[in-house]
Design a protein around this nucleic acid. Sequence first.
DNA 1: GCCAACGTTGGC
DNA 2: GCCAACGTTGGC
Length: 161
Amino acid sequence: MKYWLMKSEPDEFSFEDLWQAEGRRTHWDGVRNYQARNFMRDDMSVGDPVFYYHSNCETPGIVGLAEVCSEAYPDHTAFDPGDKHFDAKSDPENPRWMMVDIRYKRKLKRPVPLSEIKQHAKRLDGFALIRRGNRLSVMPVDKSHFRFILALESKPAGAGS
DNA sequence: GCCAACGTTGGC
DNA sequence: GCCAACGTTGGC
């Protein structure tokens, strides 16, 4: 079992939207980065836990838990000329972009903001989210990092290290 | 294969 | 809105 973090802009598709979605699940379409695609295609398994992260918003951070609930399969939005993420070079016979489905698990007791995660940079050494210039929208999380961050939700906001 | 130009991401 | 960092593109 591997652990993951997936970013979404709440204006596009928030954790609340995932709750509202039919079956409380959705397909993670629109990833157009090879590294992120490879993680989904090659390394994810059904049942893997996922941190749901809100980016490009007032307080970026982890807001909830989800889980992978499908194997990777072709991202059909790449074939749709009307779609925002259309990619003419993705051939339906040989799809370039893949996605998985994820399912809502639960909200964190409180969001754990990026700023707080950064305060624990030493403990979280190597965590892709806080590596310089990180722009990955799907990234692996070490099991120990995952647990450490999960424990933060039970501590008061702003509690020191 | 190099690398400049460009577009995008995403925190601030 | 700014801008640093990064990935991709395309000329050569």
